[in-house]
Structure formats: structure tokens, C-alpha cells
Design a protein around this nucleic acid. Structure first.
Lengths: 122, 122
DNA sequence: CGGAATCCCTGCCGATACTG
DNA sequence: CAGTATCGGCAGGGATTCCG
């Protein structure tokens, strides 16, 4: 099966990129992976992800939890405290993302240089 | 530098995902990588990327060319024929994407299963 | 035939405000 | 403190049309 992947409407890579392409997903996975196997509270995550809005963090975590990539643990206290950690599945996703990070850090300057040549005036 | 990556506004990974996350970028890179070092005409690309619209293919290729990931060769004939091929830079991007594809093909079923459990009713 | 420009719609994401 | 609901701005991307 060489053409059964990206070309299907339900192509796995397409589906993955739709999720990982989200603005905060990659960052959340990285932060949680760095903390692994420890947990991080909501506020702690917010602190470690500068610029994320309250809403988007909650939404991102909810999606990731729904996908089985992160585990949610609720402490039934007042005020409520919720902790997040990567599942094994979520942790396994960090490797491919790390490869992507590595490529980006190595080559994005080159890409930026090309862009500058291609569109000098703007 | 451990925190200098995703957290910067100009974080390379963020920038990369903004591009690769585009609906047709990953597919185009894969198709061109499979054809490498051969070239593909516009029509040929359109054929190999089912579902892509005329406009989005042109736009995707223009962006990739502007980023220095693909090379454009125009045959000055009537009607005009344009051929595309990956640059070495673009070819190097295929490796990280291949890793992502591999992860997706291995684990996306698992992700889908979790989603089904998380939201059985819709 | 390749591609650029236009129109429109949809979904993401941010800000704000409210519940427990 | 954690989470949700609502609103609005904005960009991605699809269909169509016109130019070379």
C-alpha cells in the first residue's frame, strides 16, 4: 500500500496534521513531555506556555484528553485542582515532533532567507 | 538553549507547523519526494493529488517555491508548461514528514478509538 | 494550460464574562 | 482556580472567472 495514505479522505497523516497543526498542541505536548512522568496543573501549564489564552489551553487539553494523548486527574478539593500528564500514546508522539523541531531549528533560517529573496518588497 | 524554541514568538517549530499544517503542503511534498529527482508538471501534480482545487495547488506551490522548498521550471511554449521538483532543502523536509506519517499510520487508529470512547453520543 | 484575482463561507482563535 | 459559553475578528481555503 503506497497510495493508501495521504490520498484517502480519512488519511492518517491528514488527520494528525489537523490536530498537531493547532496553534498550541505541539507546545503543550512538548511541555508535558518535558515534565514527564510528572504531572502539571492547569496554572502551571499556563505559566509554561506564554501567550496561551485561558480558553485555548482548556480547549487544547480537552481535545488531547479526548484523543487519549493526555490523562486528566481531578483533585476533589475547594478550590478544584486538575493535573495533566501525557499518556504513553501522547509520549510517543513527542518523538516525531522532536524530529520536526530539529528540522525546523536547523533549516528554518534557510527558509526565511529564501522568502526574503523571493519577496524583497512588501 | 532548552527553552529558546517553541516559546519564542518567532519559534521555528511554530513557523514550520504554520506552513506544513496547510491542507495540501504535506501531500505535495510527499508526491514530489516520490517523484524525485524527476519533475512533475502542474497537471500531473493535480492528477496525483485528488481533491485539490486549482487555486490551492497553485497557491501551495507558490508558497513552497517562495520558501525555497521547490524549484519552478517554466517551458516558454504555447501553451505554457511548468514543472516542479523538490530542492535539496525540500527533500530534506520529507524525512521528518515521513516520521510523522509513520506515527500517524501506527497510532491514529488508537486515537480514533479513544475519541469514540470519549464521545459515544453526538 | 498555468495561474492570478475575486467572492464567500467556514472554522480557528482571542477577549470577555459567567458557573462551581 | 478550573472550565464553559458567547461573540467577533481574521485567515484558510473552495468555486468561479479572467489573463498570459
Amino acid at each position: 500500500m503506497t497510495r493508501g495514505d495521504i490520498f484517502d479522505p480519512a488519511c492518517p497523516t491528514r488527520l494528525l496534521l489537523d490536530r498537531v497543526g493547532g496553534k498550541w498542541v505541539a507546545m503543550a505536548v512538548k511541555v508535558l513531555a518535558e515534565a514527564h512522568p510528572g504531572e502539571l496543573g492547569f496554572a502551571e501549564l499556563e505559566r509554561r506556555m506564554p501567550g496561551v489564552s485561558h480558553k485555548m489551553l482548556a480547549q487544547t487539553l480537552r481535545t488531547l484528553a479526548g484523543d487519549g494523548l493526555v490523562m486528566r486527574r481531578v483533585e476533589p478539593v475547594i478550590p478544584p485542582r486538575v493535573h495533566y500528564r501525557l499518556t504513553p500514546l501522547g509520549l510517543s508522539l513527542d518523538a516525531p515532533l522532536a524530529v520536526l523541531r530539529e528540522w525546523a531549528e536547523t533549516h528554518m533560517a534557510e527558509v526565511a532567507a529564501h522568502r526574503r529573496i523571493a519577496s524583497p518588497a512588501e
